[in-house]
Protein backbone atom coordinates (compact mmCIF):
# COMPACT_ATOMS: atom_id res chain seq x y z
CA UNK A 1 0.00 0.00 0.00
CA UNK A 2 1.58 3.27 -1.03
CA UNK A 3 1.15 6.63 0.63
CA UNK A 4 -1.82 7.89 -1.44
CA UNK A 5 -3.73 4.67 -0.86
CA UNK A 6 -3.05 5.04 2.82
CA UNK A 7 -4.44 8.58 2.86
CA UNK A 8 -7.57 7.53 0.94
CA UNK A 9 -8.14 4.58 3.25
CA UNK A 10 -7.65 6.78 6.31
CA UNK A 11 -10.04 9.41 4.96
CA UNK A 12 -12.73 6.81 4.22
CA UNK A 13 -12.31 5.32 7.69
CA UNK A 14 -12.56 8.76 9.30
CA UNK A 15 -15.68 9.60 7.27
CA UNK A 16 -17.30 6.33 8.30
CA UNK A 17 -16.36 6.91 11.92
CA UNK A 18 -18.27 10.19 12.08
CA UNK A 19 -21.06 9.22 9.64
CA UNK A 20 -23.58 8.14 12.32
CA UNK A 21 -23.25 11.53 13.97
CA UNK A 22 -24.14 13.38 10.77
CA UNK A 23 -26.77 11.14 9.19
CA UNK A 24 -30.31 10.35 10.26
CA UNK A 25 -31.35 6.87 11.40
CA UNK A 26 -32.56 5.85 7.96
CA UNK A 27 -29.25 6.49 6.25
CA UNK A 28 -27.32 4.93 9.10
CA UNK A 29 -29.44 1.85 8.59
CA UNK A 30 -28.56 1.88 4.89
CA UNK A 31 -24.90 2.03 5.87
CA UNK A 32 -25.48 -0.92 8.19
CA UNK A 33 -26.84 -2.92 5.27
CA UNK A 34 -23.82 -1.88 3.23
CA UNK A 35 -21.60 -3.10 6.07
CA UNK A 36 -23.31 -6.48 6.24
CA UNK A 37 -23.07 -6.95 2.50
CA UNK A 38 -19.44 -5.83 2.64
CA UNK A 39 -18.78 -8.56 5.22
CA UNK A 40 -20.53 -11.18 3.11
CA UNK A 41 -18.82 -10.03 -0.07
CA UNK A 42 -15.41 -10.04 1.61
CA UNK A 43 -16.03 -13.66 2.58
CA UNK A 44 -17.15 -14.51 -0.92
CA UNK A 45 -14.16 -12.65 -2.28
CA UNK A 46 -11.94 -15.20 -0.58
CA UNK A 47 -13.69 -18.01 -2.44
CA UNK A 48 -14.48 -16.33 -5.75
CA UNK A 49 -11.89 -13.58 -5.93
CA UNK A 50 -8.78 -15.07 -4.34
CA UNK A 51 -9.26 -18.76 -5.11
CA UNK A 52 -11.29 -18.34 -8.29
CA UNK A 53 -14.01 -20.79 -7.28
CA UNK A 54 -17.40 -19.84 -8.73
CA UNK A 55 -19.70 -19.86 -5.75
CA UNK A 56 -23.22 -18.62 -6.36
CA UNK A 57 -24.75 -20.11 -3.25
CA UNK A 58 -23.21 -17.83 -0.69
CA UNK A 59 -26.65 -16.98 0.71
CA UNK A 60 -26.91 -20.59 1.90
CA UNK A 61 -23.94 -20.10 4.26
CA UNK A 62 -25.32 -16.72 5.31
CA UNK A 63 -28.64 -18.42 6.11
CA UNK A 64 -26.90 -21.19 8.05
CA UNK A 65 -25.25 -18.64 10.30
CA UNK A 66 -28.37 -16.54 10.77
CA UNK A 67 -30.54 -19.54 11.62
CA UNK A 68 -27.94 -21.03 13.97
CA UNK A 69 -27.78 -17.75 15.86
CA UNK A 70 -31.56 -17.35 15.88
CA UNK A 71 -32.28 -20.90 17.02
CA UNK A 72 -29.67 -20.85 19.77
CA UNK A 73 -30.89 -17.49 20.93
CA UNK A 74 -34.64 -18.08 20.90
CA UNK A 75 -34.61 -21.69 22.12
CA UNK A 76 -31.70 -21.77 24.51
CA UNK A 77 -31.51 -18.09 25.45
CA UNK A 78 -27.84 -17.88 24.55
CA UNK A 79 -26.93 -14.18 24.12
CA UNK A 80 -26.81 -13.42 20.42
CA UNK A 81 -23.22 -12.17 20.30
CA UNK A 82 -22.05 -15.35 22.03
CA UNK A 83 -23.43 -17.35 19.13
CA UNK A 84 -21.20 -15.46 16.70
CA UNK A 85 -18.34 -17.99 16.56
CA UNK A 86 -20.76 -20.90 16.59
CA UNK A 87 -22.77 -19.43 13.68
CA UNK A 88 -19.57 -19.14 11.73
CA UNK A 89 -18.55 -22.65 12.65
CA UNK A 90 -21.84 -24.22 11.57
CA UNK A 91 -21.78 -22.35 8.26
CA UNK A 92 -18.14 -23.25 7.70
CA UNK A 93 -18.61 -26.94 8.46
CA UNK A 94 -21.69 -27.03 6.27
CA UNK A 95 -19.68 -25.47 3.44
CA UNK A 96 -16.92 -28.04 3.88
CA UNK A 97 -19.41 -30.90 3.81
CA UNK A 98 -21.11 -29.57 0.69
CA UNK A 99 -17.99 -28.51 -1.14
CA UNK A 100 -16.01 -31.68 -0.45
CA UNK A 101 -17.60 -33.84 -3.18
CA UNK A 102 -17.96 -31.10 -5.80
CA UNK A 103 -14.99 -28.79 -5.37
CA UNK A 104 -13.06 -30.47 -8.19
CA UNK A 105 -15.70 -29.56 -10.76
CA UNK A 106 -14.89 -27.22 -13.61
CA UNK A 107 -15.80 -23.55 -13.06
CA UNK A 108 -19.35 -23.22 -14.30
CA UNK A 109 -20.38 -26.64 -13.02
CA UNK A 110 -19.38 -25.54 -9.56
CA UNK A 111 -21.49 -22.43 -10.14
CA UNK A 112 -24.55 -24.51 -10.95
CA UNK A 113 -24.02 -26.86 -8.00
CA UNK A 114 -23.69 -23.98 -5.57
CA UNK A 115 -26.89 -22.45 -6.97
CA UNK A 116 -28.52 -25.82 -6.34
CA UNK A 117 -27.22 -25.96 -2.78
CA UNK A 118 -28.51 -22.46 -2.15
CA UNK A 119 -31.95 -23.41 -3.38
CA UNK A 120 -32.06 -26.65 -1.40
CA UNK A 121 -31.19 -24.77 1.77
CA UNK A 122 -33.87 -22.16 1.09
CA UNK A 123 -36.52 -24.81 0.38
CA UNK A 124 -35.45 -26.71 3.49
CA UNK A 125 -35.93 -23.55 5.56
CA UNK A 126 -39.35 -22.92 4.03
CA UNK A 127 -40.34 -26.53 4.76
CA UNK A 128 -39.43 -26.11 8.42
CA UNK A 129 -36.75 -28.76 8.34
CA UNK A 130 -36.34 -30.65 11.68
CA UNK A 131 -39.18 -28.46 12.94
CA UNK A 132 -36.81 -25.75 14.11
CA UNK A 133 -36.65 -23.15 11.33
CA UNK A 134 -40.19 -21.83 11.62
CA UNK A 135 -41.14 -22.46 7.99
CA UNK A 136 -41.95 -19.59 5.66
CA UNK A 137 -42.56 -17.20 8.58
CA UNK A 138 -39.07 -17.71 9.90
CA UNK A 139 -37.98 -17.00 13.45
CA UNK A 140 -38.87 -13.90 15.40
CA UNK A 141 -38.16 -12.53 18.84
CA UNK A 142 -34.39 -12.71 18.56
CA UNK A 143 -32.95 -10.69 21.43
CA UNK A 144 -30.88 -7.55 21.02
CA UNK A 145 -27.14 -7.91 21.38
CA UNK A 146 -25.91 -7.23 24.87
CA UNK A 147 -22.39 -5.88 24.87
CA UNK A 148 -21.12 -6.31 28.44
CA UNK A 149 -24.38 -4.99 29.84
CA UNK A 150 -24.84 -2.37 27.13
CA UNK A 151 -27.84 -3.27 24.96
CA UNK A 152 -27.42 -2.37 21.31
CA UNK A 153 -30.68 -1.25 19.75
CA UNK A 154 -30.21 2.02 17.82
CA UNK A 155 -29.02 1.89 14.21
CA UNK A 156 -26.14 4.16 15.29
CA UNK A 157 -25.00 1.59 17.82
CA UNK A 158 -25.31 -1.25 15.33
CA UNK A 159 -23.28 0.82 12.92
CA UNK A 160 -20.23 0.64 15.15
CA UNK A 161 -20.75 -3.06 15.85
CA UNK A 162 -21.03 -3.93 12.16
CA UNK A 163 -18.37 -1.62 10.82
CA UNK A 164 -16.02 -2.52 13.65
CA UNK A 165 -16.39 -6.09 12.52
CA UNK A 166 -15.79 -5.03 8.92
CA UNK A 167 -12.60 -3.26 9.97
CA UNK A 168 -11.40 -6.35 11.82
CA UNK A 169 -12.23 -8.47 8.77
CA UNK A 170 -10.29 -6.19 6.45
CA UNK A 171 -7.28 -6.29 8.75
CA UNK A 172 -7.33 -10.09 8.94
CA UNK A 173 -7.88 -10.48 5.20
CA UNK A 174 -4.98 -8.15 4.40
CA UNK A 175 -2.76 -10.29 6.61
CA UNK A 176 -4.11 -13.45 4.98
CA UNK A 177 -3.47 -12.05 1.52
CA UNK A 178 0.19 -11.52 2.35
CA UNK A 179 0.60 -14.98 3.78
CA UNK A 180 1.65 -18.25 2.25
CA UNK A 181 -2.02 -19.23 2.34
CA UNK A 182 -3.10 -16.19 0.30
CA UNK A 183 -0.39 -16.73 -2.29
CA UNK A 184 -1.38 -20.36 -2.62
CA UNK A 185 -5.00 -19.37 -3.30
CA UNK A 186 -3.91 -16.92 -6.01
CA UNK A 187 -1.67 -19.52 -7.61
CA UNK A 188 -4.62 -21.88 -7.62
CA UNK A 189 -6.78 -19.29 -9.33
CA UNK A 190 -4.23 -18.51 -12.02
CA UNK A 191 -3.26 -22.07 -12.87
CA UNK A 192 -4.49 -24.99 -10.83
CA UNK A 193 -2.34 -27.54 -12.64
CA UNK A 194 0.86 -25.57 -12.17
CA UNK A 195 -0.04 -25.02 -8.52
CA UNK A 196 -0.52 -28.73 -8.03
CA UNK A 197 2.78 -29.29 -9.80
CA UNK A 198 4.52 -26.94 -7.38
CA UNK A 199 3.40 -28.98 -4.44
CA UNK A 200 0.29 -27.06 -3.46
CA UNK A 201 -2.43 -29.35 -2.22
CA UNK A 202 -5.17 -27.84 -4.37
CA UNK A 203 -8.05 -29.80 -2.87
CA UNK A 204 -7.02 -28.68 0.61
CA UNK A 205 -6.71 -25.01 -0.32
CA UNK A 206 -9.95 -24.96 -2.28
CA UNK A 207 -11.79 -26.44 0.69
CA UNK A 208 -10.06 -24.10 3.10
CA UNK A 209 -11.14 -21.11 1.02
CA UNK A 210 -14.70 -22.39 0.97
CA UNK A 211 -14.73 -23.08 4.68
CA UNK A 212 -13.24 -19.74 5.63
CA UNK A 213 -15.48 -17.72 3.31
CA UNK A 214 -18.54 -19.54 4.62
CA UNK A 215 -17.37 -19.05 8.22
CA UNK A 216 -17.45 -15.32 7.58
CA UNK A 217 -20.84 -15.51 5.91
CA UNK A 218 -22.13 -17.38 8.96
CA UNK A 219 -20.90 -14.65 11.30
CA UNK A 220 -22.46 -12.01 9.05
CA UNK A 221 -25.68 -14.02 9.32
CA UNK A 222 -25.47 -13.84 13.10
CA UNK A 223 -25.09 -10.05 12.96
CA UNK A 224 -27.98 -9.88 10.52
CA UNK A 225 -30.20 -11.87 12.89
CA UNK A 226 -29.20 -9.60 15.77
CA UNK A 227 -29.94 -6.48 13.72
CA UNK A 228 -33.30 -7.59 12.32
CA UNK A 229 -34.55 -9.67 15.32
CA UNK A 230 -36.67 -11.47 12.69
CA UNK A 231 -35.34 -13.74 9.98
CA UNK A 232 -37.19 -15.60 7.26
CA UNK A 233 -36.14 -17.68 4.24
CA UNK A 234 -36.88 -14.90 1.77
CA UNK A 235 -33.86 -12.97 3.07
CA UNK A 236 -31.63 -15.74 1.72
CA UNK A 237 -32.93 -16.14 -1.80
CA UNK A 238 -31.00 -16.82 -4.95
CA UNK A 239 -30.88 -13.10 -5.73
CA UNK A 240 -28.96 -12.51 -2.54
CA UNK A 241 -26.26 -14.81 -3.86
CA UNK A 242 -26.35 -13.12 -7.26
CA UNK A 243 -26.04 -9.73 -5.63
CA UNK A 244 -22.96 -10.83 -3.67
CA UNK A 245 -21.45 -12.39 -6.75
CA UNK A 246 -22.00 -9.12 -8.57
CA UNK A 247 -20.42 -7.08 -5.79
CA UNK A 248 -17.24 -9.12 -5.99
CA UNK A 249 -17.04 -9.11 -9.78
CA UNK A 250 -17.98 -5.46 -10.26
CA UNK A 251 -15.61 -4.33 -7.54
CA UNK A 252 -12.74 -6.39 -8.85
CA UNK A 253 -12.17 -10.01 -7.92
CA UNK A 254 -9.53 -10.32 -5.23
CA UNK A 255 -9.50 -6.61 -4.45
CA UNK A 256 -10.60 -5.61 -0.95
CA UNK A 257 -11.06 -1.88 -1.75
CA UNK A 258 -12.94 -2.87 -4.89
CA UNK A 259 -15.32 -5.11 -2.99
CA UNK A 260 -15.98 -2.38 -0.44
CA UNK A 261 -16.62 0.20 -3.14
CA UNK A 262 -18.95 -2.16 -4.98
CA UNK A 263 -20.86 -2.90 -1.77
CA UNK A 264 -21.49 0.83 -1.44
CA UNK A 265 -22.55 1.16 -5.06
CA UNK A 266 -24.73 -1.94 -5.29
CA UNK A 267 -26.47 -1.62 -1.93
CA UNK A 268 -26.23 2.09 -1.16
CA UNK A 269 -26.73 3.70 -4.56
CA UNK A 270 -30.22 2.27 -5.23
CA UNK A 271 -31.36 4.00 -2.03
CA UNK A 272 -30.55 7.32 -3.64
CA UNK A 273 -32.85 6.49 -6.54
CA UNK A 274 -35.78 5.14 -4.63
CA UNK A 275 -38.34 6.69 -6.93
CA UNK A 276 -37.03 4.50 -9.74
CA UNK A 277 -36.90 1.46 -7.51
CA UNK A 278 -38.85 -0.74 -9.92
CA UNK A 279 -36.31 -0.13 -12.66
CA UNK A 280 -33.19 -0.57 -10.58
CA UNK A 281 -32.75 -4.29 -11.21
CA UNK A 282 -33.06 -3.52 -14.90
CA UNK A 283 -30.22 -1.04 -14.60
CA UNK A 284 -28.23 -3.62 -12.62
CA UNK A 285 -28.54 -6.14 -15.39
CA UNK A 286 -27.50 -3.60 -17.97
CA UNK A 287 -24.52 -2.47 -15.89
CA UNK A 288 -23.35 -6.07 -15.52
CA UNK A 289 -23.46 -6.60 -19.28
CA UNK A 290 -21.74 -3.30 -20.09
CA UNK A 291 -19.10 -3.72 -17.38
CA UNK A 292 -18.02 -7.07 -18.74
CA UNK A 293 -17.33 -5.49 -22.12
CA UNK A 294 -15.85 -2.20 -20.94
CA UNK A 295 -14.07 -3.13 -17.72
CA UNK A 296 -14.12 -6.86 -17.02
CA UNK A 297 -11.44 -6.59 -14.33
CA UNK A 298 -13.79 -4.58 -12.10
CA UNK A 299 -13.83 -1.02 -10.81
CA UNK A 300 -10.74 -1.28 -8.60
CA UNK A 301 -8.90 -4.36 -9.79
CA UNK A 302 -6.49 -6.15 -7.50
CA UNK A 303 -2.89 -5.10 -8.01
CA UNK A 304 -0.14 -7.55 -8.55
CA UNK A 305 1.83 -8.57 -5.53
CA UNK A 306 5.09 -6.73 -4.91
CA UNK A 307 7.90 -8.22 -2.93
CA UNK A 308 10.62 -6.52 -0.98
Amino acid sequence: MNRIDGWIAGLCAALLLVAPLLLNAYWVDVLNSVGLYALLALGLNLILGEAGLFNMGHAAFYAMGAYTAAILNTRYQIPILWTLPLSGLVAGLFALAVARPVVHLRGDYLLIVTIGVGEIVRIALVNDVFGITGGANGIFGISRPNFFGFIIRQPQQFFYLIWGFVALTIFLLLRLKQSRFGRALNYLREDAVAAEGSGINTAYYKLAAFGLGAFWAGMAGCLFAAKMTIISPESFSFWESVMLFMIVILGGAGSIPGVLLAAFLVIGLPELFREFSSARMLVFGLVMMVMMVVRPQGLLPARGRRFG
Binding site: D108, A279, L282, M288, M291
Partner: peptide
Protein backbone atom coordinates in the same frame (compact mmCIF):
# COMPACT_ATOMS: atom_id res chain seq x y z
CA UNK B 1 -15.40 -17.45 -19.07
CA UNK B 2 -16.27 -15.57 -15.93
CA UNK B 3 -16.98 -12.43 -17.95
CA UNK B 4 -19.42 -14.27 -20.18
CA UNK B 5 -21.12 -15.86 -17.18
CA UNK B 6 -21.58 -12.48 -15.53
CA UNK B 7 -22.84 -10.95 -18.75
CA UNK B 8 -25.30 -13.83 -19.11
CA UNK B 9 -26.57 -13.23 -15.59
CA UNK B 10 -26.87 -9.53 -16.33
CA UNK B 11 -28.83 -10.29 -19.47
CA UNK B 12 -31.09 -12.57 -17.45
CA UNK B 13 -31.80 -9.89 -14.85
CA UNK B 14 -32.33 -7.32 -17.59
CA UNK B 15 -34.79 -9.45 -19.56
CA UNK B 16 -36.72 -10.43 -16.46
CA UNK B 17 -37.14 -6.89 -15.26
CA UNK B 18 -38.09 -5.62 -18.69
CA UNK B 19 -40.99 -8.06 -18.58
CA UNK B 20 -41.89 -6.92 -15.09
CA UNK B 21 -41.97 -3.28 -16.17
Amino acid sequence: RLSAVVSALGASIFLQNTLML
